[in-house]
């Protein structure tokens, strides 16, 4: 599974990455987590409000830090 976290590397983006890691370990699933910091790529992905989260090529949330339950739901949906 491919999970991308979009953001220039500020506090909120790190929180999203942490939430994703926690969700993965709670579900016992392994995935590639990629941090995308390049502004050009963030814009190309169609994300305007960072931090953004993309799971398997689908943007699931942007502009906020999702709750761990939400992340779990999104991961299980594409599993």
């Amino acid at each position: 599974m491919k999970i991308e976290v979009f953001g220039p590397g500020c506090y909120r983006c790190q929180q999203v990455e942490k939430t994703v890691r926690d969700a993965l370990s709670e579900l016992n699933i392994s995935a590639d987590i990629e941090k995308v910091k390049d502004m050009g790529k963030i814009v190309e992905a169609g994300i305007m409000l960072t931090p953004g989260l993309r799971i398997e090529g689908k943007v699931v949330c942007s502009g906020r830090i999702p709750k761990i339950e939400e992340v779990k739901k999104w991961i299980e949906k594409v599993k």
Binding site: P8, C10, M39, I42, V43, G46, M48
Partner: peptide
């Protein structure tokens, strides 16, 4: 209305422009 953190401005700029 949109932003508090100066690091989040550029993606909004890019998105608006594109």
């Amino acid at each position: 209305l949109l932003s508090m953190c100066s690091c989040s401005i550029i993606p909004i700029f890019g998105g608006l422009y594109k």
